[in-house]
Design a protein around this nucleic acid. Structure first.
Lengths: 137, 137
DNA sequence: TCCAATACCTCTAGTCTCTAGAGCAATATA
DNA sequence: TATATTGCTCTAGAGACTAGAGGTATTGGA
């Protein structure tokens, strides 16, 4: 039996976050000690590690909830889980593309800056005038 | 004189968002019509376009505030503005690198999925067992 | 065994950047 | 003039936590 602090240390999920996950229905309400403190089993530890891992990969709470519910029906085909992962992959790729355009734009802006007065500052001017940008964004 | 709706159409910033920016002190309180409706000048339009542009580039409200206050002292050197842009560029690069690792991980997870039962689903297994990942994350 | 330190409890509110809705007033158009 | 559209304020909600107040349990050392 682990205390919430133990669980936190082992998974790297902060204590208030664990309670938050419980509230959101991601983990079930654990047993309690006589003094009303949460006591966790090894199963709870695994579940939380799963959640942590999903969050690290950028999945939303809802996506993780769905995966958990899928994983509780081991007989069904796993197309659902596959779909969630694929959709997320697509989102990640779009985000990368966006950020790359942004990187480009910022590089251009920064490289034009000569460090003199604000009046001529390319950073300020570029922000004021979209026309100075290379791409739409 | 522009109404808030005109301003919204011209800048692409939604009406409630404009009011929110006013509340946050990003734009000054505009004049009002006799019936208490906001009326904006061309200067307000430029300021809002500046903010919009900054937000599109991913700058925080605070960073934009700082840039605005810098731009109001045109005699000072622009190292401040330059620093803000450079720091942000660095953040963007870090984010891109993170997302790329993630993309890689997700690709691997998805490609292993055979579409059969959950029991053998690589998506679920990968989330349950960090050891199946290639990198730390 | 007692005391202090630490960890835990609940509850509320705050973070950030908006977005949505209720209920009502002003303005524009036919 | 009647109606449609747009505007107003205020409050609450989104997502995923985080922080703090005020109090209780548990643990380790003297």
């Amino acid at each position: 039996m682990l205390t919430i602090g133990d669980l936190s240390k082992r998974t790297g999920v902060k204590v208030p976050t664990i309670r938050y996950y419980e509230q959101m229905g991601l983990i079930s309400e654990p047993e309690r000690s006589e003094g009303n403190q949460r006591r966790y089993s090894k199963t709870d530890l695994e579940r939380l590690a799963f959640i942590r891992h999903g969050r690290d990969l950028g999945l939303t709470i809802d996506a993780i909830k769905e995966l958990i519910s899928l994983s509780q029906h081991p007989d069904r085909p796993c197309v659902g889980a596959d779909r969630i992962a694929k959709e997320h992959l697509e989102d990640v790729r779009i985000k990368i593309a966006q950020l790359k355009r942004l990187e480009h734009e910022l590089e251009r802006i920064v490289s034009h800056c000569d460090g003199h007065s604000i009046e001529d500052c390319y950073v300020i001017r570029a922000l004021s005038d979209h026309g100075l940008c290379e791409h739409e964004h």
